[in-house]
Design a protein around this nucleic acid. Sequence first.
DNA 1: AATGAATGAGATTTCATTCAT
DNA 2: GATGAATGAAATCTCATTCAT
Lengths: 218, 218, 218, 218
Amino acid sequence: MIDAQMPSKPAKGWTRRKQARPGEILDAALKVFAEKGFAAARMDDIAARAGVTKGTIYLYFPSKEEVFKTLARESIGATLTEVTQRANSFEGSTREFLTMFMVIVGNLVQYGDRAVLPKIIIAESGNFPELARFWRKEVIDKGMAMMTRLIARGVARGEVRELPPAYVARLIIAPFILSIIWRTTFAQTDDVPFDYQKFLATHLEVLLNGLEPQGSAK
Amino acid sequence: MIDAQMPSKPAKGWTRRKQARPGEILDAALKVFAEKGFAAARMDDIAARAGVTKGTIYLYFPSKEEVFKTLARESIGATLTEVTQRANSFEGSTREFLTMFMVIVGNLVQYGDRAVLPKIIIAESGNFPELARFWRKEVIDKGMAMMTRLIARGVARGEVRELPPAYVARLIIAPFILSIIWRTTFAQTDDVPFDYQKFLATHLEVLLNGLEPQGSAK
Amino acid sequence: MIDAQMPSKPAKGWTRRKQARPGEILDAALKVFAEKGFAAARMDDIAARAGVTKGTIYLYFPSKEEVFKTLARESIGATLTEVTQRANSFEGSTREFLTMFMVIVGNLVQYGDRAVLPKIIIAESGNFPELARFWRKEVIDKGMAMMTRLIARGVARGEVRELPPAYVARLIIAPFILSIIWRTTFAQTDDVPFDYQKFLATHLEVLLNGLEPQGSAK
Amino acid sequence: MIDAQMPSKPAKGWTRRKQARPGEILDAALKVFAEKGFAAARMDDIAARAGVTKGTIYLYFPSKEEVFKTLARESIGATLTEVTQRANSFEGSTREFLTMFMVIVGNLVQYGDRAVLPKIIIAESGNFPELARFWRKEVIDKGMAMMTRLIARGVARGEVRELPPAYVARLIIAPFILSIIWRTTFAQTDDVPFDYQKFLATHLEVLLNGLEPQGSAK
DNA sequence: AATGAATGAGATTTCATTCAT
DNA sequence: GATGAATGAAATCTCATTCAT
C-alpha cells in the first residue's frame, strides 16, 4: 500500500474505507501503469483493479496525469528515507555495510511492490520530464549521495581501494537496476527462475574483492 | 540507419528514394518511440521526423504496431551478430577480453543510436509480450550465452575465481544497462555530464580485481 | 421501432433510456443506411439522427459493421414470423389468400419502415456476402417456402392452373419488390404519386385470372 | 463494352488502344461499382481490373464521381433505344409482342453485362439524386411509355382486358427486375441454379392468361 | 460518496487525387 | 501517355472527463 495515504488514525466502518480510497487507487494505478505505461493505461483498468468505477477516481484526483504524478512522487518517500537514515547512521565497516545493503535492498527489489516504480519513471521520462527531474533530485541524487559518502569514508579509512566514489556507488546499484528490469520485463519468460539471492551474493563477492585496496593481504 | 534496408542496387531518382524510405521511417520511429513510448507516439511525429507525411508511412508499413515491431525485431541484428562473433573467436585472456569489451560496447552505449532500443523494449514489454519474448531469446539469451561461455572458460583456465558464470555475465552487463538508462532518461538533467568512460574504467578495475582467483598474487 | 429492443421491465430515469438506446440507434441507422449505403453512412449521421453523439453508439455496438449486421439480422424477425404463421394456418381458398396477402403485405410495403431493408441488403450483398446468405436463408427461403406450399396446395385442389409453384411464388412477390424499389428510389421524383393500391389491385386481378385453371368457366 | 466509347473508325496499334481506354475503364468500373457500391469501390480496384494504374484513370476522367456518372448515363443508351424502336415499330398482336419481349429482354437480363446497372442506380440513388432523376426520365419513363402505349393499344384492339395500362406495364417489368436482383445478389448462394427461362415462361403464361379480356373464350 | 451514461477531442487508418519522373 | 510515390482530408474508433442520478 502507498505510504502517504496511510490514515494515521485507523477509523472504522466505511469512514475507514473512504480514507483508504486514494491509497487503494494508487496501488491499482501502480500496477496498471507498470504494466501498460501511462498512455496505454485506461482509467477503467485502474478503477476496475481498485474495485471502484471510473468516476470515483475523479473524486480523489483531478486527472489521470495527477494520479500518475502523485504515484511517482509519493510512493518512494518512506522507504527511501528509512534506508538512507539507516545508512547514514551506520558506523560499521564498508564490508559490513555492503553486506547489509545487499540483503535489505535485495529484498525490496525481489518482493517489494514499489520495485516497479523505476520502470515507470524510465518509460515515461520523455513524456514527463519534470518527473524525471523530480526523481533525479529526490531519489537518485539522495541515494547516490548517501552511497558516495559511505564509499568515500571507506576510502578514507583504507577499507576501499582508491576509486572515484560516485562511480563506485553506481556500480553497486547497477545490479539492482538489472534485477528490477528483469523482474518487471523478462521474469515471466524464464524457464529456470532467476535467482536474485545468488545473483546478489555473486555481486557482493566480486564487489568486496574488487574494492579491496591494492596490495592488501587476502 | 536500419541495417536490413540497405538497397542492393543503386537505382536513381525516386527509385532510390523508395528503397530508402522504410529505413528513414524506422530511424525516425526509433527516436520517437524512445522518447514517448509506443502509445504516446503519434504517426504524425514519426512522419514529420522522417520528412514525409502520415500517409506515406502506410505505403511501407501496414500499421503503427508493425512499424514498432519491425523496429524492435530488425534493428539489433547486425550489431549483435558482429559483437558475438568477435567474442566467440576471441582467443586471448579473460582480462584482455573484458578490457576490449568495455571499449567496444561502451562506445555503442555512449554514441550508438540503437542504444535506446532496450529502453523501448523495457517500456513496452507489458503491451507487447511477444516482443519481450523475442528479445529475450534473440538478444539477451544469445548475448548471455556468449558471455557465460567466456567466463566459464576463464574459470577453467584459472583466470577467474570460482563463481557462477551466468551471474557473473550479468554483473558485467549491468553497468552498461545503467549507462543506457542514464543516457536515455536522466542525461539531460545532468549538471556535470556523466563520464561513461570513467564509469566503465572503474567497472573494469573493480571487475578484474574482483574476479581474480582467491589467493593469487597481487 | 426495432422489435428485439422492447424492454421487458419499464424501469425509470436513465435506466429506461439505457434500455431504449440500442433500438433508437438501430432505427436511426436503418434510415441512414437506406439512404446512403453502408460505406457512405457516417457514424455522425446515425448518431445525430438518434439524438446522441458518435461515442454513444460505441457503448452499445462495437463497430459500424456490427450496427449494420444487427440491423440486417434482427429487424425483420417479428414481421416475417407473423406473416408466415398467418399464411401457414390459412385454410381458405387460394383466391382468398392472395387477396388477403395483397392487402397485408401491400401495407407493409407502402407504409412500413422496415420496407427499406431489402434495398440495403441488395446494395451491400457484395460487401457482406454473409448477410446475403443470411437473408437468403432466413427471409427469402422461408417466405418462398410458405408461398410455394400454398400455391402447390392450390394446384392440388384444382384452384390453380398447373404451373411450377416455386416460380409462381416469385411472380406473386415481384410486384412487391418493384414497389419497394420504387418507394425507396424513385418516389421522390414522382409528379403524380405512384398508387400502390391500384398497382396491387391490378396485380391481383391479372394474377387471379392468370392462375385460373385452363378451361374453367369465368 | 460500353457503347458510347466505341471508336467510330477502327484506328490501329496503340492509337486504337488509346481510344479504347475510356471504354475499358468504364467496363471495369461497372463491375466494381456493381460489386461494392460507389463509396466502397477503390480507384485501385477499377484500375487493376482495367489493367492500368490509378493515375491513368485521371487522364480520362476528372474524378471517381465522374466515372460513375458517365457509366450510369451512357451505358444503357444503345440497348434501350434499340429495344424501344423495335417495340414502337411492332405491328403484331399484343400476345406476339409479349412473347418476343420475354425472349429479348430475358436474354439481356440473364446474360447482358449491363444488367447490373439497375442495381447500381438503386443502391446509389440516395447519394446521387440527380442520377435517380436521370434514370427515371431517360430510362424508366421512356420504357414505361413504350410499354404503356402497347398495352393501351391492346386494350383498344380488344386483345387486353380493361386495366390501367401504366400499371400493367409495371407488372410486365417486375419479374425482370426480380431476375436482375436475383442474378446480382443471390445467384451465388443458389444450390439449384435459378432457371430464368422457366421463370419468364411462367410469367408469360400467367400474363397472357391474366390479361385476356373477360368473357373471351379460352 | 458513488455510479455509469454520455460526450467530444484526438488518434489511427484509408484512399481519392496530384504530380514528378 | 503512363506510372506510382506522396499527400492530406475525412472517416472510424478510443477513452479521459463530465455530470445527472
